[in-house]
């Protein structure tokens, strides 16, 4: 094993352990992460594999293919995060609205 393989695999495993710890109840998310990590480790150990797949679907280099897929995944995560933010915003709005109505000042 080369040094870069050790570094990358250690990183992937750390992220996986972190995810499993944080998302114990979200079975689907954990399964997804395990699958993704498994693939990552496989490709780190067998870099030639990405080249083979890349050539089959018309991409020049395996590293490029991984790069393109990563971009798609990042977009997906950004949208998920954005949805989460909107949810939070809604909650904050409800709270502030209730507070405002409760403390309504009246001049009668």
């Amino acid at each position: 094993m080369t040094a870069i393989q050790i570094v990358l695999i250690t990183g992937v495993l750390f992220i996986l352990v972190y995810f499993i710890q944080r998302l114990q109840k979200a079975v689907i998310s954990v399964l997804f992460m395990v699958l993704l990590s498994g693939l990552a480790v496989l490709f780190i150990l067998q870099p030639e594999l990405t080249n083979t797949i890349a050539h089959k679907i018309g991409v020049g280099r395996g590293a490029d293919l991984v790069f393109y897929i990563s971009i798609l995944l990042f977009w997906y995560f950004i949208l998920r995060l954005y949805a989460r933010i909107r949810k939070l915003e809604e909650t904050v709005t409800t709270l502030i609205r209730q507070e405002a109505i409760k403390n309504a000042g009246t001049h009668d």
């Binding site: 904050v92 709005t93 502030i96 609205r97 507070e99 405002a100 109505i101 403390n103 309504a104 000042g105 009246t106 001049h107 009668d108």
Partner: peptide, 24 residues
Amino acid sequence: KSVNLLRHYVNLGQGAALATGIQY
């Protein structure tokens, strides 16, 4: 007479302000 003042503790935006006023 008959004026109510509601206050959002933080700025939420015009849409939120309208919704608060209408709900009240």
